[in-house]
């Protein structure tokens, strides 16, 4: 990985903008509308208490 950093360092990128995506993302989100919800978000968790996830203690 350090070799990769060195190799990149050797490339002149002055004035070059970073490409966050290879193709310009149109970035149009879907409408902010409530839709029917037909699955249980707790289905895959083994740590559920009522309608909450139960997590480890913080301290």
């Amino acid at each position: 990985m350090l070799d990769a950093f060195s190799e990149l360092d050797a490339v002149d990128t002055s004035g070059v903008e970073p490409s966050y995506h290879p193709v310009a993302a149109e970035g149009v989100p879907r409408g902010d509308e409530a839709k029917p919800w037909d699955w249980d978000p707790f289905l895959n968790s083994g740590h559920v208490e009522g309608r909450h996830f139960r997590g480890p203690r913080i301290t």
């Binding site: 950093f5 990128t13 903008e17 490409s19």
Partner: peptide, 15 residues
């Protein structure tokens, strides 16, 4: 900036 953004700038050159 030195690593991740540099790599993204190199990606611009590759494109």
């Amino acid at each position: 900036d030195a690593y991740y953004l540099k790599a993204l700038r190199v990606r611009t050159l590759v494109i």
